[in-house]
């Protein structure tokens, strides 16, 4: 049994479908990538799994199972309780994802599993140390605006793993960071993921990052799944024309003249027609 099973999930916003028949699985100790351009529905998928869909979004079909437990059949309160212990989220923008009015330590302390008050600060500092934040004791007392973007993202990663979750969903966790910081943060995420054995769903638009961190990849477009395969196959031998086009449009620093091929409009039109006829 997989850790996370999304089964033919469909979501509508104001009657317009944003996810159509999406199925995917993520195993424990696995990093599964979800790749797509804007509007592909990849963030909506993450929110649906976390149970934080916007109010106007409606699940019309399908199931989400975590450790075999169907999340959609639970009451809202029960689901919130369960998921606060089992799932965690690493958001995209470290600036807006931390409450500017509360200290880092306070925001980290509240996700810890029940800890005696006296040990809480020590535990917070231990986690800040674990994500290699220097001067952890000082940072615990700092407010978010006093830290750099990379440090804030590290604090958020600490907060995600500190609740000892089974599944972590990371939504573009390094898009807002500098390249040199991005690599360190990615490595940190993978190390923590390997140490704790959690399943990680890595949502991104960046195939380059996917190629370096994911074991399996789901390519999405227009709310549909285009292709699902192990990472090396997606990168080296993609089967679907859209995946190939996406790779061709991605520039690379080690090869001149790459990344100047836009995705052919004919292909996009074909994808839209397929989606319209429910063929996907």
């Amino acid at each position: 049994m997989s850790l996370l099973e999304v089964d033919t999930l469909s979501i509508e916003v104001h009657g317009a479908p944003v996810l159509r028949n999406v199925s995917l699985t993520i195993n424990a100790a696995e990093i599964g990538g979800v790749v797509g351009e804007s509007g592909a529905g990849k963030s909506m998928l993450g929110k649906a799994i976390l149970g934080v869909l916007p109010r106007d979004a409606r699940i019309t079909h399908g199931a989400i199972r975590l450790d075999g437990q169907d999340l959609l059949s639970l009451s809202a309160r029960h689901r919130r309780k369960l998921q606060s212990r089992t799932t965690a989220f690493i958001p995209q923008d470290p600036l807006t994802a931390l409450n500017p009015c509360r200290t880092i330590g306070a925001q980290l302390a509240e996700v810890l599993p029940p800890t005696p008050r006296a040990h809480r600060l020590a535990e917070v500092i231990r986690w800040l140390d674990a994500v290699r934040i220097p001067s952890a004791a000082k940072v615990a007392k700092s407010f978010p605006h006093e830290l750099s973007g990379g440090m804030r993202q590290r604090a958020l990663i600490a907060a995600a793993f500190a609740s000892h979750p089974r599944l972590v969903i990371a939504d573009e966790p390094t898009t807002a960071l500098d390249a040199t910081v991005q690599k360190d943060v990615l490595r940190l995420i993978r190390e923590l993921q390997q140490d704790t054995g959690v399943g990680l769903m890595f949502v991104t638009h960046d195939l380059c990052v996917v190629a370096k961190i994911c074991q399996s990849v789901t390519v999405m477009h227009g709310g549909r799944i285009i292709e699902q395969a192990p990472c090396d196959q997606i990168i080296t031998a993609p089967r679907h024309a859209y995946t190939r086009a996406l790779l061709a449009a991605t520039p690379r620093h080690d090869e001149t003249g790459r990344g100047l091929e836009p995705i052919p409009p004919a292909l996009l039109e074909q994808l839209i027609t397929e989606a319209g006829t429910g063929n996907g």
């Binding site: 606060s84 965690a88 807006t96 994802a97």
Partner: peptide, 21 residues
């Protein structure tokens, strides 16, 4: 804001989020 969404994933009730965050 994003931090409210994050607080939701931490299992906080809506009233706690309004008052606390």
């Amino acid at each position: 804001q994003d931090y409210v969404m994050l607080a939701q994933t931490k299992g906080k009730s809506r009233l706690t989020i309004v008052l606390g965050e």
